[in-house]
Amino acid sequence: MIRFDDVWLKYHHQERGPGALARDVLRGISFKIPDGGFRWLTGPSGAGKTSLLKLIYLAQHPTQGRIDIMGTHAAKISRRDAALLRRRIGVVYQDFRLLAHLSAYDNVALPMRLARRAEHQVHADVTEILRWVGLANRLGALPDELSGGEQQRVAIARAVVGRPKLLVADEPTGNLDDEQAGRLMTLITALNRLGTTVVVATHNHALVEAYPAPRLEMAEGRLTAHG
């Protein structure tokens, strides 16, 4: 379960000196998503969607309020436990964040190797997921050698290869054509049916309408609709 309880977030302005704060990016956010739930996260640019996702995948601490991720109070876990919790969260970043010196195969294998999975298991799962996203013939390609859409598919494959308990995706279909977007949503809904909690931030209204699910709607750092 994901639970936000009156969560506020401000970013520090380093150029204004230590302790200087910008305006509130998130204001009094409260919601719950049950285990195995699916939520669209929508709202205009600058509404705070990416900031909210960062809090969910433990890349940021809130300035105020309480966050529970998979039953764990996020502010009270040790650094080691936080790292172990992150291994159970798959993240599709808006900017992909592929490692430039690693091949598509090695980028996708990275979470499994960090979790010290056996290499034969890594090979089987990575090959399968890259085949599923249509990159079976691009295993050895470096990110620079891939198109934007291919890079996005590698990023998606990396997020789901470890069968995460929670999948967080920030505009995962932004660089994909309709067919690839459809395949991606098939994959995500399949994972969701298997018990993965899913939160997808998107501007794509057609996609939201094609795959009906409860929405978290944001505007100016506030949650304007939930459900």
């Binding site: 995948y57 790292a83 172990l84 993240v91 490692l99 990275l110 979470p111 960090l114 979790a115």
Partner: peptide
């Protein structure tokens, strides 16, 4: 920095 932030986000331990 970017690489470390990425693998940190993927669950790498500080010790790793």
């Amino acid at each position: 920095r970017d690489t470390i932030e990425t693998i940190h986000g993927l669950g790498a331990l500080d010790a790793d």
